[in-house]
Every structure is written in structure tokens, then in C-alpha cells.
Computed example of a mutant assay.
Amino acid sequence: MQEADRHGLSIGIQRTNDTVFLYLKATGKLTHRDYEIIVPMIDRALEAVTEPKVKALFDARELEGWELRAAWDDFKLGLKHGNQFSRAAIVGNQHWLRAASAVAGWFVSAEIELFDSPEQAVSWLEKPVSETGADPG
């Protein structure tokens, strides 16, 4: 029996006062169809955000990459919502994630950091902005 081709994005959204906490977990090689499903959810969750008040945790430990069209979808999503993020933590140790996070930094207004564990990432996300070295204004 052939092993199933598992791929996709899981999403969690929590609001605390004016801050939105977005959790994304990627599995396998992401497809255009994955983005067709998840983008409307992200759009609805972020439609009321008027300032960069979104903190995101992207768990990429099981991410194998993107199909070409899915990579384009990811790029468009970053352009559409990139200015709404204050911080984004990426969890994963794949060597190519460092380059991917640097490119994302060109299109997203958030501070972006890479972490080996979700616990480290959450700790960084929960710190007040002044403790991370970011400009609080």
C-alpha cells in the first residue's frame, strides 16, 4: 500500500484585545489548492486589523516546500497582509528556511526570527515589543 501524500496548512487564530495571534503549521509540499482553502480564512481573520498587530507562529518543521503556483500564492498572501504583522516566528531547522525568511522580510513589515522549537518562538512572540529590539512606534 502506498503512503498517502500528506500536505496542507493548519491554522489557529486567537485575538487578545487588539492583537491577533496567528498559528500556521505546514505539512508536506504545499499546493495551490492548499492556499485556495486557507487564504479566505486568513483574509477573514485579518480583515479588521488596521495596524501591525498580528503576531504569527509558522511551524515549518514538516514543510517540504511549495509547488511553483503555491509559492506564488504565498508571495501574494505576503503582499496582501504583510503590513499587518508586527512579529513572525518560524520554527524549523531546514537550511533553506533562513533564505526563505530573509526573502519574506522584503515583503512583510514584521520582525522575522527563526527558532528550533515552538517554545522558544512563543517566548519571543510574547515579549513586549521593546524587549525584542523592535521600534515600538
Results as ranks from 00 to 15, higher is better:
residue 118 P to H: 03
residue 124 W to P: 03
residue 42 I to W: 05
residue 77 L to P: 01
residue 100 A to W: 04
residue 59 D to H: 05
residue 71 A to S: 12
residue 62 E to A: 11
residue 102 A to S: 00
residue 80 K to I: 01
residue 58 F to C: 01
residue 124 W to D: 02
residue 97 L to N: 05
residue 110 A to W: 01
residue 52 P to A: 10
residue 47 E to V: 09
residue 89 A to K: 11
residue 27 T to Y: 04
residue 61 R to H: 09
residue 65 G to K: 02
residue 108 V to H: 00
residue 56 A to N: 06
residue 45 A to V: 03
residue 95 H to R: 10
residue 135 D to Y: 05
residue 96 W to C: 08
residue 67 E to D: 14
residue 4 A to F: 11
residue 24 L to M: 12
residue 20 V to Q: 03
residue 1 M to Y: 11
residue 63 L to P: 11
residue 54 V to F: 07
residue 98 R to S: 09
residue 66 W to M: 06
residue 52 P to Q: 00
residue 128 P to T: 13
residue 7 H to E: 12
residue 35 Y to K: 03
residue 102 A to E: 02
residue 114 L to N: 07
residue 24 L to D: 04
residue 24 L to Q: 11
residue 90 I to P: 04
residue 35 Y to G: 01
residue 46 L to F: 02
residue 85 F to S: 02
residue 39 V to I: 13
residue 61 R to G: 07
residue 132 T to F: 06
residue 107 F to W: 02
residue 75 F to Q: 02
residue 132 T to V: 13
residue 92 G to C: 05
residue 93 N to A: 01
residue 84 Q to A: 13
residue 119 E to Q: 10
residue 28 G to H: 06
residue 49 V to H: 09
residue 55 K to R: 15
residue 89 A to Y: 08
residue 124 W to V: 03
residue 118 P to Y: 07
residue 39 V to H: 02
residue 16 T to N: 10
residue 16 T to L: 05
residue 53 K to T: 15
residue 88 A to G: 01
residue 76 K to H: 03
residue 17 N to H: 12
residue 13 I to L: 08
residue 23 Y to G: 00
residue 5 D to N: 14
